[in-house]
Amino acid sequence: MRRYVLSRLLAAVPLLLGVSFLAFVLVTLIPADPAEVALRVNEIIPSPELIELQRKELGLDQPFWERYVRWLGNSLRLDFGHSYTNHHRTVAGELGRCLPATLSLAGVSLLFVVGASIPLAVASAMTRDSLFDRLVRTLVFFGTAMPNYWVAFLAIWLFAVHFDLLPTGGDEGWRSYLLPAFTLSMTYISTYVRLIRNTMLAVMQEPFVLYARARGLPEAAVVRHVLKNSLQSSLTALGMSVPQLIAGSFVVENIFAWPGVGRLCVSAIFNRDYPVIQAYVLMMGVLFIVCNLLVDIISAMIDPRRQAEL
């Protein structure tokens, strides 16, 4: 067990380094001089001397690798420097301020995803080719083809404008979670209904299901076996929906004026606030790797066939 976790951790290290390197390199790709940008966004007319000064302050005069190592060291201590647009605020502070809103939205969306996709998929796989199954499949198809910002509009218009039931944006109590979480989860619900349904149909073809029926087990017991096996193999994908919901929230956060990290990043893009973008990218990259690791370890732990690996 410990050895497995340790080896997985070790395998994640190069990935983490790679992601951090990419996040760092991105800044060097900026078409403009970051020092100049930093001056301009604060409405200071850049003169050569000022730019020189700013370069020193940002450490841009040092060699590439040195800068990377220093940046990496700082990042490990969660020190991402200061925001360009607002010198009094640290990037870490900004992210920390916005993260809870994103996490709670992602959490509610995850509940929606799990709560909707599993029952829908099971019901539609069980009643294969029935009217219900076809309806679910149609919805799933449109769920993946519809731009989710457009769905958000339709929902805003219907529930917030037309019926005036829910707020159009902002974070004001549980009612304001419904529309954003619905919008955010819609695509993922469609994906997972499709995935779990197809997995169940595949599992139903397995000889052990035939044998369970041949032993005369009641259908409910057979379904229990099918479900257990299907969820086991969908678990990895379901687990990876957590980081996807967190990272994918930027569109929804923008539409619903949700005070989360996604909106922070998009406004940073408009303001060319590079340290914020860089920290956001690094954070999300790390989040994905860590989640992947956790999902892997958990699925190894609960799969008896993989217990030998532990």
Partner: peptide, 24 residues
């Protein structure tokens, strides 16, 4: 029919390795 299966008419399958639920 299901009550009859296993009780009155039983089946022995071709592939024993895949005939049991791997998670139980």
């Amino acid at each position: 029919m299901r009550a009859l299966c296993g009780r009155e008419i039983a089946m022995i399958m071709q592939h024993p390795l895949t005939s049991f639920d791997p998670l139980c």
